[in-house]
Simulated assay, not measured.
Amino acid sequence: MKILVFNGSPKKDKSDIMHITRAFLAGINEKISPEVKVINVIDSHIEYCRGCFTCKLNGGTCVYDDDMKMILPEIIASDLLIFNFPLYCYGMPAPLKVLVDRTLPLSSMRMKWDGNRYIHVGQADFSHLHYLMICGCGFPNSRNNFEPMVAQFKLLFPQNHTIITVPESPMFNVPEATGVTQPRLELVQKAGKQYAERWEIDDELLREIGSPMIPEETYAAIVNSNAC
């Protein structure tokens, strides 16, 4: 299995979310030995898409000569794309959104009816690809926080997608919180092992991973006590 991780956090390896991703990859490693590449998106030179559609009309070549020229072939060559990022204003951080925008060369101008909507026809075969979203937020719970990003991810990748959301994620970078974060990382590792076995994770396990690690009111009080 070839895994390409897009780390969307500006904090790179020190991000809260990378703790979760590393635990997930550890679970996969219990079953198989994947080839893993991590791209810290903040370090990549990726220009903003200007919507000229040149790529869709000339077979997939973008007018920009930047890092996407190397990233696009790596996407096609992968089996699993992991989008790892903190929730920013109910969506993904800007550098990662720019990268997603610049995947436009992978589709053509042609459209087809697919289920209940029109989609662009791909300029490559994506049937082998699987997509995983790992997203954390600083709120005490998942309600009315992740829904916009979850909806966007499902629209972007309607097939073969899996979504992991984790509230209270800043605690993963707090050594004093290890007593509650370590058990949660163990659940994530279990999820990685399941995923390696069958490309999916039990719904109950996903709900457990997405539940608050400490009571909501306690977490909010801790955050407020440290607020300026």
Score class of each variant (00 low, 15 high):
21 T>M: 00
62 C>Y: 11
158 P>L: 13
154 K>E: 11
87 L>G: 07
177 A>S: 08
81 L>Q: 12
113 W>Q: 06
106 L>W: 09
35 E>D: 14
85 F>T: 13
211 S>M: 07
223 V>M: 07
143 R>S: 06
94 A>P: 04
89 C>Q: 10
62 C>F: 07
197 E>V: 05
15 S>N: 03
14 K>V: 11
129 L>T: 07
70 M>P: 01
16 D>K: 03
184 R>F: 03
34 P>T: 01
215 P>E: 12
182 Q>Y: 13
142 S>M: 01
43 D>R: 11
227 A>E: 11
10 P>S: 05
202 D>I: 07
73 P>Y: 08
130 H>F: 02
63 V>F: 07
111 M>S: 05
179 G>F: 15
92 M>A: 10
116 N>F: 15
171 M>R: 09
209 I>P: 05
222 I>Q: 11
56 K>A: 05
131 Y>N: 09
140 P>N: 09
15 S>D: 00
173 N>W: 02
228 C>K: 14
169 S>L: 00
21 T>G: 02
49 C>P: 04
78 S>M: 06
179 G>P: 01
83 F>N: 01
72 L>Y: 01
70 M>F: 13
176 E>Y: 07
40 N>F: 09
67 D>L: 05
23 A>N: 02
206 L>A: 00
130 H>E: 03
160 N>L: 02
67 D>P: 07
50 R>D: 06
137 C>L: 05
5 V>D: 04
63 V>N: 06
47 E>C: 10
85 F>Y: 13
102 R>W: 09
164 I>L: 10
218 T>A: 09
152 Q>F: 12
63 V>E: 10
16 D>F: 01
196 A>S: 03
134 I>V: 14
91 G>E: 10
76 I>F: 04
216 E>A: 02
136 G>H: 02
110 R>W: 00
164 I>H: 01
107 S>W: 13
174 V>T: 12
7 N>K: 01
129 L>P: 07
38 V>H: 02
87 L>H: 02
160 N>Y: 03
213 M>G: 04
162 T>S: 12
182 Q>P: 07
156 L>Q: 13
162 T>H: 04
213 M>F: 04
149 M>E: 14
131 Y>H: 13
80 L>N: 05
154 K>F: 05
35 E>R: 10
151 A>T: 14
93 P>Y: 04
102 R>H: 02
